[in-house]
């Protein structure tokens, strides 16, 4: 087995407060891995360390065996680690076409091209079209993102991440806040992600987690509580205790 993403003894403190404690995660290549935990367990802090927005106070992060602990955000993306955001962080006055175009340009190394105009490279156009098509965004590609329905924005969020051709994708609550009517599109998009992309899903919605993941890690107060297959985790009395205390859905 090969590990796509790995953390070793990750530590993060805000002031005196430990929000990540000795966290060692192993995400296998090709896995559909979910990271769950009650509110305030520190899931988003973990994502921010994995992507490089926050610097850990201790421990290491390995992407396909390479140490990326001190690598800046954009270099991690170019190395194949992308993420989606929990709350839409899209460019409100850029269109989906431009947003995807950006991601494709950067990935293909043409991002710093200042002379050639957008839309003049057939290979890049092809890739943009492919992504727009896959995520059902072709019909709205010229609308400013800020005016799109929320569900479309969530789709674009995933499409941008996929456009960077990640080998490891971090999905941060992809279905959060999406109205029921548009939910199906999101779930289909998540289920239809290419198999060769390793996915680490951070999610609150247990239906989504159990229908999608083949492996689950449970985070409580910044530390790993348990890890296993969905069946193992569902049976685990500790997990039940944690979730029943907070949310009777499980």
């Amino acid at each position: 087995m090969t590990l796509a993403l790995q953390t070793i003894g990750l530590e993060k403190q805000f002031g005196g407060l430990a929000v990540t404690r000795d966290l060692s995660l192993n995400v296998e290549a090709g896995a559909r891995h979910a990271l769950i935990g009650p509110n305030g367990a520190g899931k988003t802090t973990v994502i921010n360390q994995l992507t490089g927005v926050l610097k850990p106070n201790g421990g290491r992060i390995l992407l396909e065996g390479h140490d990326i602990t001190h690598m800046p955000v954009h270099k991690r993306v170019l190395r194949g680690l992308s993420r989606t955001f929990q709350i839409n962080q899209l460019y409100a006055d850029l269109t989906p076409l431009e947003t995807i175009g950006l991601a494709v340009s950067e990935r293909s190394g043409h991002g710093s091209d200042w002379w050639r105009r957008m839309g003049t490279r057939a290979d890049i156009n092809g890739e943009i079209a492919e992504n727009l098509e896959r995520f059902k965004l072709l019909d709205v590609m010229n609308e400013p993102t800020g005016t799109l329905p929320y569900g479309k924005q969530r789709l674009l969020e995933i499409a941008v991440a996929i456009a960077t051709k990640p080998r490891v994708l971090l999905l941060d609550e992809p279905a959060a806040g999406v109205p029921e009517s548009e939910r199906h599109d999101i779930l289909a998009a998540v289920a239809g992600l290419p198999r060769e992309v390793t996915v680490l899903l951070i999610e609150h919605d247990m239906d989504l987690v159990f229908s999608f993941a083949d492996r689950i890690s449970v985070l409580v107060s910044g530390a790993l509580l348990t890890e296993g297959t969905p069946e193992e985790v569902a049976r685990d009395p500790q997990v039940k205790a944690v979730y029943l205390g907070e949310d009777a859905d499980v």
């Binding site: 927005v53 954009h74 962080q89 460019y91 850029l94 431009e98 947003t99 990935r107 991002g111 957008m118």
Partner: peptide, 23 residues
Amino acid sequence: SPFGLSLRAIRNNPLRASAVGIP
């Protein structure tokens, strides 16, 4: 150009820009 487009992305949201791979 792609360069100009990336500037607009940075003005919109620098954090998001680096998450798309923009230096």
